[in-house]
Design a binder for these strands. Structure first.
Length: 454
RNA sequence: GUGAAUGUAGCUCAGUUGGUUAGAGCACCAGAUUGUGAUUCUGGGGGUCGCGGGUUCAAGUCCCGUCUUUCACCCCA
């Protein structure tokens, strides 16, 4: 018999992990909902025509493709097969693929339902996505994204609300030391103008985004090899190395970007977001205006965000930004959107490292009813029904086995209370209730137990 | 896609210059204890040494291939 294994880059989540994951997801979901975001789910698979061309050439290669059903080679061109032309052959034998992210399916949904959707449309989506990447630390082939996006409004209120939601989620997750990095695409463009590097803007952004990871010297090297001249590099760093408060940075950039409409727009919008945040009564205590934040992705056009947990060696746990033309790729131009997402897996690792999961997440059933024979088990069934009716998670050990075994089971399953029901208890009505954590035992009636737990 | 490491019991790992019947801890099962778990003691089950080939009198150990997992780069959550 072959030993069963998992496909590369995938994981099982056992009960203990699920409890912790759900703790995270429930808080995220609740926060999304209190800000008026509504749930959306889309199919795991999309037509390949929907997916390809949306993530660049590299992204297309990371798409998992689904083989057509039936005799999929029947229609295939024999010359393609003869030439072993995988790329062309793939488009003939595969019409569907697994979704690569939640943003493109969302755009597809918005375009398909544009007449039924009331804009501005706020949706959140928590589902797995798949990438045929080579797995590594914190990087999987199947992982969950939790996205929240608003489409159909330019208002910077949305950006301010994103900061509020991030703050609230972290508060609920009991994470205190984190930084919400905020920047604006216009400021990056202004920076490229200052450096006279408009021509290879994206090379500039990709390189400076690595600043806090690889350091200034290596970024300088990379900028040189990417064809930005020394003078430009000096100018870039003269801006990036400016230290000071957000207000200091704003007035400094005001002079730097005097001739840059893009830079001006960026500054104006960042200022407005911070102002709106304040009017909401939100705190900017965790917000850092970070000029080097670039988030490689080229489709952002306005504010960009990234959240890092301090003193935890994990990449960003959340990120997002504004994009002006999400639905344009499906022929519906002019819809502005802003969105962000939480990386559940990384939040999980971070909480584990900070030991910040509350104890409740490790508990399971509240009460186990242990018994000695047919008669006491029968009594347990009725008792279980009454406990359950009060919403108390209860189970009856199903088999007639030794009490030792039942307690062992309760211990392993981290049940909170075991109720021992024997002949004595049956006649007196005084049940033996054992608190598993302490080992203490108390006699009480079923009524008293229900009262105490309900 | 590029480069590197790894693989021995369910898990974490020992295993000498190639040399008897491959070990430990944890986990699991049973008993000590016929009304009490997590602590203690005793006993037990469990291995195609990733897979395939080669060298050798002899391979867990050396060589080649292959797969897996992990790490770094690219990119990304």
């Amino acid at each position: 018999m072959e030993k069963p294994t998992l496909p590369k880059g995938t994981r099982d989540f056992g009960p203990a992990q699920m409890a912790k994951r759900q703790f995270i997801l429930n808080h995220i979901r609740q926060v999304f909902q209190t800000y008026g975001f509504l749930p959306l789910e889309t199919p795991a698979m999309e037509n390949l025509s929907t997916l390809t061309g949306k993530y660049g050439e590299e992204g297309d290669q990371l798409l998992f493709k689904i083989l057509n059903s039936g005799d999929f080679l029947k229609e295939a061109d024999t010359t393609l097969m003869g030439n072993r032309d995988s790329k062309s052959l793939a488009s003939v034998i595969s019409e569907k693929g697994l979704r690569y992210d939640l943003t493109v399916p969302f755009a597809r949904y918005v375009v398909m339902n544009r007449h039924d959707i009331t804009f501005p449309f706020k949706r959140y989506q928590i589902q797995p996505v798949w990438r045929a990447d080579r797995p590594q630390k914190g990087r999987y082939r199947e992982f969950y994204q939790c996205d929240a996006d608003v489409v159909g409004t330019d208002s910077l209120l949305c950006e301010a609300e994103i900061i509020l939601m991030i703050t609230e989620v972290f508060q609920r997750l009991n994470i205190a030391d984190y930084t919400i990095k905020l920047n604006h695409r216009g400021i990056l463009t202004g920076l490229a103008e200052v450096a006279h590097a408009q021509a290879n803007e994206s090379s500039l952004f990709v390189a400076i985004d690595k600043l806090d990871k690889i350091g200034e010297d290596k970024v300088r090297d990379e900028l040189l090899t990417r064809g930005i001249d020394r003078e430009g590099i000096e100018r870039v760093f003269s801006v990036l190395n400016f230290k000071g408060t957000t207000a200091d940075k704003q007035s400094f950039l005001q002079t730097q970007f005097a001739a840059s409409p893009n830079g001006q727009k960026g500054l104006r919008e960042v200022a407005e977001v911070l102002m709106l945040l304040q009017r909401y009564g939100g705190t900017a205590e965790h917000v850092e205006f970070d000029l080097a934040l670039a988030r490689g992705l080229s489709y952002y056009t306005g504010c960009i965000f990234e959240v890092k947990i301090n003193h935890v060696a994990i990449g960003s746990v959340s990120g997002g930004g504004r994009y002006d033309n999400l639905t344009g790729m499906f022929g519906m131009p002019g819809v502005s959107g802003v969105g962000f997402s939480f990386g559940v897996d990384r939040l999980y690792d971070a909480l584990e490292e900070l030991a910040a999961f509350p104890q409740e997440t490790t508990r399971s059933t509240t009460v186990l009813l242990a018994h000695f024979d047919e008669a006491t088990r029968t009594f347990a069934l009725g008792a279980a029904a009454r406990l359950r009716a009060r919403g108390i998670a209860t189970e009856v050990y199903p088999d007639l086995v030794k009490i030792k075994k039942q307690l062992e089971f309760a211990d392993k399953k981290k049940v909170r209370f075991t109720v021992v029901i024997g002949a004595d208890e049956l006649t007196s009505g005084q049940l033996t209730v054992k608190t598993m954590e302490t080992g203490e035992q108390q006699k009480m009636t079923l009524e008293e137990l229900i009262q105490r737990l309900g």
